[in-house]
């Protein structure tokens, strides 16, 4: 019996507002992620992590992180992003 997995229903933090793309790029660099290319889109920006095949899609009110299965990287990006946003 593998007993299933327990989860909590709510995040530890609520994040709100928006962030500047430059701010996130700087925070990524601080965490050792420097190989990035920023593209402007009609609705925001796309940060492309070129060696990792990973994309961060930044729009007003939302951010979408696309990873190719690299879970440690995803968690690092998650924590970097959360730290850039106001939260409670």
């Amino acid at each position: 019996d593998d007993g299933g997995v327990s989860e909590t229903a709510h995040p530890k933090q609520y994040v709100y507002g928006n962030l500047e793309v430059e701010e996130l790029v700087q925070a990524l660099a601080k965490n050792g992620i420097t190989d990035v290319k920023v593209e402007d889109t009609a609705s925001g920006h796309i940060i492309h992590l070129q060696t990792e095949d990973t994309i961060i899609q930044l729009e007003e009110g939302s951010t979408h992180i696309f990873c190719e299965g690299n879970e440690p990287l995803r968690r690092k990006l998650r924590d970097t992003l959360i730290a850039c946003l106001p939260s409670f």
């Binding site: 609520y14 994040v15 709100y16 507002g17 928006n18 962030l19 009110g61 939302s62 951010t63 979408h64 992180i65 696309f66 990873c67 190719e68 299965g69 690299n70 879970e71 995803r74 998650r78 992003l81 959360i82 946003l85």
Partner: peptide
Amino acid sequence: EHEIRFTS
């Protein structure tokens, strides 16, 4: 609220 979504 800032919505964050992950796709892997």
